[in-house]
Design a protein around this nucleic acid. Structure first.
Lengths: 192, 192
DNA sequence: GGCATAACTTGACATTATCTAGTTTTCGCA
DNA sequence: TGCGAAAACTAGATAATGTCAAGTTATGCC
């Protein structure tokens, strides 16, 4: 029986980074600490990612890809499900989310692969809104409603992950209900 | 005519920090750079703020105080105005906002003065929702709707400041209209 | 005046990102 | 099988950072 192939270093490093990001936060990520956790020299991560921003770019790309896939999977279930899947992604991948919207950590304009995944995720939401408001709706209305849905999902996500919202909510059960209720409120505002 | 009293060092330092925060981002804030910009030794800021987190705590406290005041001023104009004032605060004080929800930069639990201002701002929003849904509404409904309003305002704010939303919107005029429309959509979902 | 306290300065240390320059591994191909 | 180049690393050095410890100056009050 062949030995299991060890995880490629890049995977190990990104996982270590995500662990730190979802714990203390992305700023605590240091190249040398990642190298230490991967048991390699302090320069090994540079070979794969170029610099610190490269690590964040990899996280962005992966994060938006996962988010896109999850939204894609719930695409036929309406805006409510889309909103819910956004928030659930955030809760299940808080390390990713904490990096994905930090333009200071990684300017996506410099990392086209990451930007592509981000645009794709946005496009799925956009298309869903188009489907709800109708193809004949004017551009501005679609943009507004897309921004609205995105704001609700993104706002709730960030408030749950980093904001004081968790402190004001009792149990996880409550949180689950809260997410569902808010997703429903948001989707019922669309297309009217 | 007496000489104008020079700004106290704390003000100079916080302003320098805000300048950096609203530009590159809060992570680029370094104690030594702040000292440099204030023309003092690299240890002077420590005397006033204790450590780096102390600077962020001061920014949080000030930010939530300003936000609270602006919301308080628009309190009688309904949830729509409240939501709008939140977003406008974010746009006009992006340095503050970028710090206020970064629990990794400053754990508000360790800075009661900051926490008080944050609770106050939240309370204003909460009271407004109570006023809209009626005093007889049950606790869960009020919590849900408060979280909803907050999510919309906060989500739109962060997406406009750091997210890719700006790239997808044409002019500042459009942005103004977008904010108004979204605030209206949000407030019309309340209390139904 | 005297003196306690606040408001700083100086120097040192460990840690960091990143540059430059090696060294070892791997692998396609003769 | 062996070789040669590219990939995957290692090693050392530099400048910058946060923060500790210890000194010095300025302020305000009795």
């Amino acid at each position: 029986m062949p030995l299991a192939k060890p995880d490629p270093l890049q995977r190990v490093i990104v996982d270590a980074a995500l662990e730190i990001a979802s714990g203390v936060g992305p700023d605590a990520i240091s190249m040398r600490e990642l190298a230490r956790q991967a048991n390699v020299s302090h320069q090994a991560p540079y070979h794969h990612f170029g610099d610190r921003a490269g690590i964040f770019a990899a996280i962005c790309e992966e994060g938006f890809a996962i988010l896109g896939n999850e939204m894609q999977g719930n695409r036929n279930l309406g805006a409510e499900a889309l909103c819910e899947s956004y928030v659930r992604f955030a809760l299940n991948h808080r390390g990713h989310l904490r990096v994905m919207f930090r333009t200071d950590l990684c300017d996506m304009a410099s990392y086209p692969d990451a930007a592509i995944q981000a645009d794709r995720a946005f496009g799925i939401l956009y298309d869903e809104v188009v489907a709800m408001v109708g193809l004949d709706a004017d551009e501005l209305a679609v943009q507004t409603q897309t921004a609205y849905m995105w704001s609700v999902a993104h706002g709730l996500s960030t408030l749950l992950i980093d904001g004081p919202l968790l402190n004001k909510i009792g149990s996880v059960q409550d949180m689950d209900q809260l997410i569902k209720n808010i997703a429903r409120m948001a989707s019922s505002s669309i297309g009217v």
